[in-house]
């Protein structure tokens, strides 16, 4: 049973085909309006995430399907001690596909091993968030026309930022991508991502603490939030949370066709004054996320033989 747990579960060809489907959904939404009629998506959200859950639900509804699920683990059998594996087996009897978010890293993989229906990882702690990566890829491809030959700057929390790790993993499979890592020393990209992904794939990258110095080089700027929930120590969080704030002034040296992305929610790392700048693409990214999730649900249900 094909599931999506890690972005690398899909080949480059599969990712490209998925993005093609998403583009086609955007161009021809009516064609897909009843593709998942009488099919059910179960959204199992063991930790809160309004945005991702609503995006999955909107995606399924726009495909003509329906949604069951929960958004608070307190009201579920897991609060009584049920294992993730048992939950997945039970939900397999009710639904056709699962989207799962869980605070424990690897929980969606455990679910996929136990379920008899496809499982989509909708975020597992600080580990993976592959559908956000698909949304990032679709947005970049739509804005830049290609996923090859461009320079992307990752700014902010590169240590705990799972979206950053996943996107780097995904982009490392395309030609001519150059990476600029912009973060305070305490929040640098983990060395294993550098050695296992960037070095191994021969990706050119530089590290800096100075966003403005590298701004003119960038074709894409991926901003991230310093996430309070990833810190054990509040003192560290308070010290680092305002490390990088993107303002109109900092954009003066940027390229005219820069594409600014952010996985959202933002706190204060992008000034609202930038929202009306045509280079701000983070709300387009939200829309892309819904369309790419539609494409993903279609792909997995088709491969599971649940739709034609």
């Amino acid at each position: 049973m094909k599931s999506l747990i890690d972005i690398l579960d899909f080949s480059v060809e599969e990712v490209n085909a998925l993005l093609d489907t998403a583009d086609d959904i955007i161009a021809n939404p009516d064609k897909y309006a009843e593709c998942c009629k009488r099919k059910k998506l179960a959204t199992l959200f063991f930790e809160p995430s309004t945005r991702t859950r609503l995006s999955f639900e909107a995606a399924m509804i726009e495909l003509g399907g329906s949604v069951i699920g929960f958004s608070d683990a307190q009201n579920t059998s897991s609060s009584k001690g049920e294992s993730v594996s048992d939950t997945a087996k039970v939900i397999s009897c009710y639904a056709d596909i699962i989207a799962m978010r869980h605070p424990k890293e690897g929980a969606p993989l455990v679910a996929a091993q136990a379920a008899s229906i496809p499982v989509i990882n909708a975020g597992d702690g600080g580990h993976n968030h592959p559908t956000q990566t698909l949304a990032d890829l679709l947005t970049i491809r739509r804005e830049k026309g290609s996923l090859e030959n461009f320079t992307i700057g990752f700014c902010g929390d590169l240590k705990f930022g799972r979206t950053v790790h996943s996107l780097i993993n995904a982009l490392a499979r395309y030609e001519g991508v150059r990476v600029v890592l912009i973060s305070p020393d305490e929040l640098k990209l983990p060395s294993y991502v550098k050695t296992d992904v960037l070095d191994r794939k021969g990706i050119s990258y530089t590290q800096t603490t100075d966003l403005e110095a590298v701004m003119p080089e960038l074709d894409v700027l991926y901003m991230t939030r310093v996430q309070k929930e990833r810190f054990f120590n509040e003192e560290d969080y308070l010290r680092l949370k305002d490390s990088y704030i993107l303002t109109p002034q900092k954009l003066t040296a940027a390229k005219k066709d820069l594409c600014i992305l952010h996985p959202l929610p933002r706190v204060n790392e992008i000034s609202v004054a930038i929202d009306d700048d045509p280079r701000a693409c983070y709300f387009k990214q939200v829309l892309c996320a819904k369309y790419v999730r539609m494409a993903l649900i279609l792909k997995l249900l088709k491969e599971a033989g649940k739709i034609v």
């Binding site: 294992s83 993730v84 594996s85 869980h102 605070p103 424990k104 890293e105 690897g106 929980a107 993989l109 455990v110 597992d124 702690g125 600080g126 580990h127 296992d196």
Partner: peptide, 29 residues
């Protein structure tokens, strides 16, 4: 933070990710 820390009877499983440096990583986290 790994699911192996709380999931009932889940075997801890590691994959060889870098044979040259003998690196194994948990398949879950």
């Amino acid at each position: 933070r790994c699911i192996t820390s709380c999931e009932q009877e889940l075997a801890h499983k590691f994959k060889l990710t870098d044979a040259e440096n003998h690196v194994y990583r948990c398949i879950y986290c």
